[in-house]
Amino acid sequence: MHPAIQAVLTVGVAVIVSIGYFYLSNVFLDRVLFPARGPNAGRNINRANLIRPWLFLFPAFAALGLYLAYPVVETIRLSLTDRVAGGAYVWAGTDNYAQMLGDPKFWEALRNNFFWLLIVPAASTAFGLIIAQLTDRLAWGNIAKSLIFMPMAISFVGASVIFKLVYDYRPAGEEQIGILNAVYLALGGDAPQAWLTIPWVNSLLLMVVLIWIQTGFAMVILSAALRGIPEETIEAAIVDGANPWQIFFKIKVPQIMPTIMVVWTTITIVVLKIFDIVFAMTNGQWGTQVLANYMYDKLFRANDWGVGSASAMVIMLLVLPILVWNVRTARKEMR
């Protein structure tokens, strides 16, 4: 059977099963378990309504628990154990963490991730804000925004191929087909460079790929925020003689600061998990390693689940402050 047919069948089965579950479980609750008739009708209706939310919640939260919450706990356990022959696990205490901290590649990954965190969210948000402001009153602004937003639909792997061509290197004397080297030579560079093998420069060039993708996201959100600014505040500033720069930096930016923070943290989370770009372009060679790729290396190439899980915990630890902040703002809003 062709897998695509299998997929369509699965969708059909999933739709029937889930609708069947919700319908039948509600019927069971109302007709069999707590029927709304007989001497206890009133009490039964109340009881049924107490249980009903959990019928609605059960499948989703069971999946969430199994696929996201349980793995967090299990990863903590794995990071504290070692696998031994025969599939058993022995308690290893903090050995895995010690081993990881002694690995220069880990420190390289951590250092690179730190620079990614410093540069990518800042650059994407800044570009997004500038483009959102510039296109705000433009007749063809929507077309421009749509084109800059487009990389959002392109996979990290596709983007890696796109930028590998940009960074392509041919030995000196040959025709350069990578536009970066062509521009570099046209601007008076002495010889073509193999950009992706030059430490520091290569990390920056990988960051460019993510900035290219994430700027569109920042732009869309910030552009909506700019439109939401009350006109009176801007009109008042104009009446008071503010110039366009002052209006932008002193009136608009402070008013959309909460949105800027949201964009910043969202991109920060993407950066913390960045894997595909490094995996496809350099695979962590030439000093470009990042945490997620380091983890993948340990888990699936070195088959070291202990150290791999320990490095996954490092990523989790870095995400934690944002997680707490998100939960707190969400709860504040709910009130």
């Binding site: 990863t75 913390l272 996954a312 990523i315």
Partner: peptide, 8 residues
């Protein structure tokens, strides 16, 4: 929550 944690 990074899905990296969930892999293994």
């Amino acid at each position: 929550v990074p899905l990296q944690l969930a892999l293994i």
